[in-house]
Design a protein around this nucleic acid. Structure first.
Lengths: 186, 186, 186, 186
DNA sequence: CAGTAACCGAGACGGTACGTCGTGTCTTCTT
DNA sequence: AAGAAGACACGACGTACCGTCTCGGTTACTG
């Protein structure tokens, strides 16, 4: 079982150093001091391994804060996510998204183990804000999640430069101003 | 020169059928009835070829309509883009984005030849809408573009199911309501 | 100790079914319902195991008959050996000879435990025949053994079809006619 | 085509140095400065390659001399063969025979390309000797070949030490004395 | 209108990595 | 305490493509 640990660590290190596509299973095995067979015993592909590695790193983390102010809470959460994506995790994540484009199983696992759980958690917090009258009740929370997070991924996948905190805060502000309850204009 | 055509056509056909990552240069050559050398004579890599193929297909297309109503114009434009991404082009595009994650030259070319030009065109239309008083003047048009298009790419890259027209219209509405000029509340 | 039996039996069965080279230690272990470790505890290699298996099967068997007629005795012995080599034992034996070509220890053990003892026994019978005046006294009994048995092995190793009894009898006759005492011709 | 040459040479060198079973295709490729693919392009297996290598080395060689004296001719021929088998070729040949025990195609090819042609040539010379009254007409020439050559292979495959010229001459003498025409004893 | 270049198909080539199999060693858990 | 079960590092397998490289055999341009 300690072989698993060595493999996950080696995978993260190598991928963050050289980029997902430039890392071979053989290199991970060598770097972990492990036979290739041992990797294939536990994971069916590089994508599979990368997914577990990223989940292992991120864990249950990034639970949603709830101070009562949805705007402040989302900002804090988004900045935290952006910080993560700016480091090792970001390289890993970009690789997995790339892999997901051509490997359906990885695509499905990406949704199931990463995107969906966090989307759900976010929706819960948003629903509360709707109840509090801080957000429009007529917009599906799922769509709110998309509107809020999409720009972050857009920057991650299309730009080389990371999303700066200032920009993130602004993008969030603009998005939220479209999601606030319309003042009763009687 | 007709070899070029055959190659571009074969590339699009094969990639849309099997997915970007499952297509080899050799397969393209064979399918185009061409020697590998001929492909390498004109393109330096599969990503390079795919980029030209997609540009060849899409062309200058999708110029921004201007009826005076920014909301209607954007909707039309977005729906058109979504329609494109739902077919052959979408598969190709997803492959290129994937490739871009690990091949800097492809990433740069993706920005230069696809993203940037269209972003510029969109910004121009948005600037006009700002002048017309239909959009807030205090938001950078570049950010508006991100807010408007990001959800589309989010769906393309993370979901298996395509973005439905209804959803697209809604997402746009919500986004735009955050970008409208704030009524003087004196 | 019953594990040993199961292993030897499994080895013979598998090898005679699939051929020596197509049988792995793992397959023998699985078929014997035994852990690999148990095999390695007692034998150092597949060749080693095969050698013991064949000796176990053949045992002390094939002792040389002595009716007083060397020709008849050899014929009976040769036919018996040929019969053995035509069944399971033959497949095993061919595998061991093959192995012996590249594994010196197996080569040595093949000589020590199989070839030599039987050669000695044969020489003893031949020496008696020489004393009886049935064979030339000026030919080393060891060479006689070679002349008598070599054709049998030649057929075993080079031909797919087994040596037929008729052929064996003939070959022996021809060989022996060269080994009979030269009649005093003066 | 010069890759083929390099491969055949490397195969012979390596096999004669380390023994057939201890040489891998990868080692041959590396030693020949060639990709594995190139080997597999031309040969289907190590046995296949070894067979061509040995034929390439031996060539049409070893044609049967005909001085009119069958005994002298065979002796010369046998000594020549023994000389060959004592060097590089012998190691190669033992490996091929071993391989032939478990690989039917190699077994067949061994017969077809090496054993059979030479057996035929030998039979032709023997037939002539029969006509000349030097050998018994009632023994199939094919059997004569077996009787004459079998001891050579016996020594090659079962002993580590090579067959010495003196022994070979003796063995041949004894064999031939059984094959000479029986003097009319009426 | 012949000569010569550019372009092409075909595919051999040296490589790298793949995912699998079997080896012989070792540890763990069961009985 | 013995032994099955199987994880493990390792090395080789045979395959798939990579990108480079000759090879001949066309067009089609030019001198």
């Amino acid at each position: 079982m300690e072989a698993r640990r060595a493999i996950l660590d080696a995978a993260i290190t190598l991928i963050s150093e050289r980029g997902y596509a430039n890392v071979t299973i053989e290199a991970i095995a060598a770097s972990a001091g492990v036979g290739k067979t041992t990797i294939y015993r536990w994971w069916s592909s590089k994508g599979d391994l990368a997914l577990e590695a990223i989940n292992d790193r991120v864990g249950e983390a990034i639970d949603f804060p709830d101070t009562g102010d949805i705007s402040a809470d989302l900002r804090r959460q988004l900045l935290e996510v952006a910080r993560l994506l700016d480091g090792e995790i970001g390289v890993l994540f970009r690789g997995i998204v790339a892999e997901a484009q051509s490997t359906p199983t990885v695509g499905a696992a990406l949704l199931d183990t990463i995107i969906e759980p966090r989307t759900r958690a976010c929706e819960a917090r948003l629903a509360k804000a709707v109840d509090d009258g801080q957000l429009r009740p007529d917009v599906a929370t799922r769509m709110m999640v998309e509107l809020i997070y999409a720009p972050l991924y857009y920057r991650l996948l299309f730009k080389t430069d990371p999303a700066r905190p200032r920009d993130i805060a602004l993008l969030l502000d603009y998005t939220l101003s479209g999601l606030r309850p319309v003042p009763a204009t009687d």
